[in-house]
Deep mutational scan, measured.
Amino acid sequence: MPVRRGHVAPQNTFLDTIIRKFEGQSRKFIIANARVENCAVIYCNDGFCELCGYSRAEVMQRPCTCDFLHGPRTQRRAAAQIAQALLGAEERKVEIAFYRKDGSCFLCLVDVVPVKNEDGAVIMFILNFEVVMEKDMVGSPAHDTNHRGPPTSWLAPGRAKTFRLKLPALLALTARESSVRSGGAGGAGAPGAVVVDVDLTPAAPSSESLALDEVTAMDNHVAGLGPAEERRALVGPGSPPRSAPGQLPSPRAHSLNPDASGSSCSLARTRSRESCASVRRASSADDIEAMRAGVLPPPPRHASTGAMHPLRSGLLNSTSDSDLVRYRTISKIPQITLNFVDLKGDPFLASPTSDREIIAPKIKERTHNVTEKVTQVLSLGADVLPEYKLQAPRIHRWTILHYSPFKAVWDWLILLLVIYTAVFTPYSAAFLLKETEEGPPATECGYACQPLAVVDLIVDIMFIVDILINFRTTYVNANEEVVSHPGRIAVHYFKGWFLIDMVAAIPFDLLI
């Protein structure tokens, strides 16, 4: 008679799926529990143990900040960024110097990925580790590398530091407007667009060049630039800015003055950032001319202004700041037409079709709590990747769950009947059967004279019903998954307890 339990259901295979997918890609990662103190490590794979030199037993239950890997060259700011990422709910990448158990130093890129439950609360953290440099290539500990984003994938490793954006290309926007319009339909740009040429040739750093990471940081200074100062900065030398009595002219307006920039070969870094931020506020060169004239017309309804409409929906549905990093990277690809469009465009503009998908598509409701890094690593669709929660398995109709209350009560009843059979069957065979043979035949009273025979008949009927119930009862397979398919249940029961239950259900007393 089957006594099969499996009270692990309803099970959740999400954690096993993450481990299996990460292991298949030869990654070095740990999984931490966000619900406990210090976000203790609950799993670390073999790749991480080989990377740091510690065994799994030495890593388990330690804080996922990996303070046991810190050393003299470990930056405090990087460690603080990892700790801050564990307090938030967004994906974050941090470069930090770690030390192995043998004392060797290596520069590592740590990717902190939160995993949320159905309520939107962070319950786990996945920390992925990628070695960037070994100890002989690690720089000085005073050099802070965590304020910069990861290198873009479309640049060669040897040319990542030679990417320079020439400031004269930004200063000569109005001069290039006529050349853009003359391109017409034969050019790649839309009317009114501004073409910015980027020099990728390796050259020595000069005062006129600005690194790509500095251009990325310009967006942080746009908020500090007032509207009046932006307007004066875009007017140009024809209309000098008016300053109040006793007030000095704005240095932001002076930063885009061609006369002032041409007199000296070098520009201050602050002026460069502010000038680029001011130019980015204009949607095209037409807006710059309109600002000089004193009238700013409404933005025209053409394809170039609607190019950012799908980007707005993608940004609203993005799951991490990696989408913004990807957008900034692609927006700086050289030799393309940049349409400086305000994100607050007309909502009635139709979304044009684009061959290049900048932001990841909208994630469906079932995966809105899973970050983009987890979705990318697992390579699963929205119909396959579940949320991290207890999910009731989908069972067929008329199927009994093996952990249901009805099955528990039924098993206790069958257990009592088995005990009765084990006690009274030998007793009936030894004593009652002998008395029946010696006594007179009682054929007239039937079952009324033999109450134990009636009980034995009921017990046999219950055993037959138990066999039928076992054909529709779920079970737990070797992978700790609840199986509810009727065919698989029948095959599993035939290979197991079916023969024993059938022999126990045969009414031998009635056959004798």
Rank of each mutant, 00 (worst) to 15 (best):
P2M: 04
P2W: 06
P2F: 06
P2H: 03
V3I: 08
R4N: 14
R4V: 09
R4Q: 12
R5K: 13
R5W: 15
H7K: 06
A9Q: 15
D16H: 12
G24S: 13
G24T: 15
Q25G: 07
S26Y: 08
R27M: 09
R27C: 14
K28A: 13
K28H: 11
I31H: 01
I31V: 10
I31Y: 01
R35S: 15
E37S: 09
N38T: 06
C39I: 12
C39Y: 14
N45F: 01
D46I: 03
L51M: 14
L51D: 01
G53I: 01
R56T: 01
A57S: 12
M60S: 01
R62H: 14
P63T: 13
T65K: 03
C66E: 01
D67F: 05
D67G: 06
D67T: 07
L69S: 01
H70V: 07
P72R: 05
T74K: 01
T74Q: 01
Q75K: 10
R77Y: 12
R77L: 13
A79W: 01
A80D: 08
A80F: 09
Q81T: 13
A83M: 13
Q84V: 05
L86A: 01
L86C: 14
G88A: 13
A89L: 08
E90R: 13
V94S: 04
I96Y: 01
A97D: 14
F98S: 01
R100Q: 01
R100C: 01
K101H: 03
D102V: 01
G103T: 10
C105E: 14
C105G: 08
F106C: 01
C108L: 01
V110R: 01
V113M: 15
V115Y: 13
V115C: 08
K116E: 06
K116W: 13
N117C: 15
V122P: 12
N128T: 08
N128P: 01
F129L: 05
F129S: 01
K135R: 08
K135A: 08
K135W: 05
D136L: 05
M137N: 15
V138Y: 06
H143P: 14
H147Q: 03
R148N: 14
G149M: 06
G149D: 10
W154T: 11
P157G: 09
G158A: 14
T162D: 15
F163A: 15
F163T: 15
R164V: 07
R164I: 12
A169R: 15
L173E: 14
L173V: 08
E177V: 03
S178G: 08
G183C: 06
A185P: 13
A185V: 12
G186I: 06
G186K: 04
G186P: 08
A188R: 10
A188V: 07
A193K: 05
V195C: 03
V196N: 11
V196S: 01
D197N: 08
D199C: 01
D199N: 05
L200D: 11
E208C: 01
E208W: 03
A211Y: 09
A211Q: 06
A211I: 05
A211L: 12
D213W: 03
D213P: 07
D213R: 15
T216S: 14
A217G: 13
N220F: 05
N220A: 12
H221K: 15
V222E: 13
A223I: 13
P227D: 15
P227H: 01
P237I: 08
S239R: 07
S239A: 08
P241R: 11
A244S: 05
Q247R: 06
Q247H: 06
S250N: 09
P251S: 13
A253P: 14
A253D: 06
A253G: 09
S255L: 14
S255D: 05
N257G: 12
D259N: 10
D259R: 06
G262T: 09
C265P: 13
S266Q: 07
S266H: 10
A268M: 06
R269A: 13
T270E: 13
R271D: 10
S275K: 05
C276I: 13
A277F: 12
A277C: 14
S283P: 07
D286S: 09
E289K: 02
M291Y: 05
V295C: 15
P297T: 09
P297V: 10
P299S: 09
P299G: 07
R301H: 08
A303T: 14
S304W: 14
T305W: 07
T305R: 12
G306A: 12
M308A: 11
L311V: 12
R312F: 05
S313R: 11
L315D: 15
R326V: 11
Y327Q: 12
I330D: 05
S331P: 09
S331G: 08
K332I: 01
K332T: 08
N339P: 14
N339H: 01
G345F: 04
G345R: 06
L349V: 11
A350L: 07
R356P: 12
R356L: 09
I358R: 11
I359W: 01
P361Q: 12
R366W: 08
H368L: 14
K373Y: 05
K373C: 07
Q376N: 14
V377I: 09
L378A: 05
A382W: 15
L385E: 03
